[in-house]
């Protein structure tokens, strides 16, 4: 298993921090990609942050009311070592299936 940390992104243009309003997930939760993680408020608006990836939540940083600087850790996920990268999925190794059968008269000339 590997840990992947997701830092607070710049939610506007040139914002430097955000305030945590409410966490929507807890350590131990299994989250899907795009699942809402946390509601934060910036000087521009309050927004829900979607999860950048699937994984198990290991740690969350900051409770309601706490300020987090852009680029500082927001949440840490645990993911299996054999997960795909940012793009695509790991192919499943399946037993080969066939519908076609071969028939041939092989003259050994």
């Amino acid at each position: 298993m590997a840990e992947i940390s997701f830092p607070l992104p710049d939610l506007g243009e040139g914002l430097i921090e955000a305030t945590v309003l409410e966490w929507l997930v807890s350590p131990g939760d299994q989250v899907e990609r795009n699942q809402p993680l946390v509601e934060v408020e910036t000087t521009k608006s309050a927004v829900e942050l979607p999860s950048p990836q699937a994984g198990k939540v290991v740690r969350i940083h900051g409770g309601p009311g706490d300020k987090i600087n852009v680029g500082e850790p927001l949440i840490v996920f645990e993911v299996p070592d054999n997960t795909a990268g940012i793009v695509g999925t790991v192919p499943k190794e399946e037993a080969p299936k066939r519908r076609v059968r071969l028939s041939a008269v092989l003259d050994e000339d």
């Binding site: 080969p96 299936k97 066939r98 519908r99 076609v100 059968r101 071969l102 028939s103 041939a104 092989l106």
Partner: peptide
């Protein structure tokens, strides 16, 4: 896929 390759093999064998 496996079936397309098998079909190709069959064409060659025939």
């Amino acid at each position: 896929n496996i079936d397309r390759i098998l079909f190709g093999i069959q064409r060659v064998l025939e």
